[in-house]
Design a protein around this nucleic acid. Sequence first.
DNA 1: AGGCTATAGTTGAGTACGCAAGCAATAGTA
DNA 2: TACTATTGCTTGCGTACTCAACTATAGCCT
Lengths: 131, 131
Amino acid sequence: MSAQLVAEHGLTINDYECLLYLAHAEEGRMRRVDLAEQLILTASGVTRLLDGLERAGWVERASCASDRRVTYAVLTDAGRAKLQEAADSHITGVRTLFEERFSADEIETLARLLARLPGAGEAVDEASCSG
Amino acid sequence: MSAQLVAEHGLTINDYECLLYLAHAEEGRMRRVDLAEQLILTASGVTRLLDGLERAGWVERASCASDRRVTYAVLTDAGRAKLQEAADSHITGVRTLFEERFSADEIETLARLLARLPGAGEAVDEASCSG
DNA sequence: AGGCTATAGTTGAGTACGCAAGCAATAGTA
DNA sequence: TACTATTGCTTGCGTACTCAACTATAGCCT
C-alpha cells in the first residue's frame, strides 16, 4: 500500500502527506510546528523529513517577517507536480482497496465511526480534493 | 496508547504482541518465521526483537529435533508473568478508549467491517481471552 | 551419491523516527 | 528596562525497523 508509493514515486507516506498538507495550505506554505502536529511527528522528525524534501527540490525554506523564529516550508512547483503525479496512483490505490471490500454505505459508516478516534482529523476528504 | 505500554512496562507493542502470540501458541513456542508473519515483520526484525526479549529473560531459544534450521522462541515463566501484568493494563486501556466513544453495536460493526482489511487476522479476540 | 533450489536464521548497512539538550527569538512580568 | 518563561527549530544519540548478502540445513531430481 504505502510500499507502492515508495516503489513508484520514491515517497514515504509522510513525504506524501507533507506535500499534501502544503498543497492545501494557504500560499502553499506552513510553519514547521503546524506541519509536525498534522503529521503526528515531533519537531525533529519534521526537520529531517523536510531535509529530504528540500534536497529533492519539492519544498523550499522561507522566513517569516513577523516572527524571526519561524521558517516556513513552502511547496515548489516541482513539489506540486510530484504530488499530483503520486496522488493519482495513490488515491486510486486506496479507493480500490476499499471499494473492493465495502459498499458505499459501509464506507460512510466506517468514516463516521472512525472519525471519533483521537487524531482522526479531516484526512477523510483527501480523496475528494484534486490535490 | 502504546506509549503507555512502554512507560509502564518497558514493552514495545511488538514486544507485547510477540509475548501474546507465544502465550497462545501450542507449548508456548513458535518458529521465528511464523512469528514474523504474525507480527508483520521481516525475519531480521524478529531476530532483533527476540534478542531483546531473550536478554530480558521473557523468552528462550530451543532447537527443533526434526529440522536443525529452525530455532524456536519459547515463552519463559517470567515472560508469561510479564505478559499477564502488561495485558491487564493494556486491555483495559484499549477497552475504555473504545467504550468511551462507541456503543456495543457500533463496536461490533467496526469489528465486522475492519476484519475485511488485509492483515486483519484474528487480533480481535485479544480482549476476550485472559492472556 | 551429487547437484540444484528452497527455507530458516543471522548480520551489516542504511533509514525514519523519538527524546533530550541546546540556541535564538518572542512574550509576559516586575 | 531587565529577568524569566515560552516557542520554533536544530542537533546528537539511541532504537526499531528494512533490505541485501550470507551460512546452514532440507528437499528434490537425476
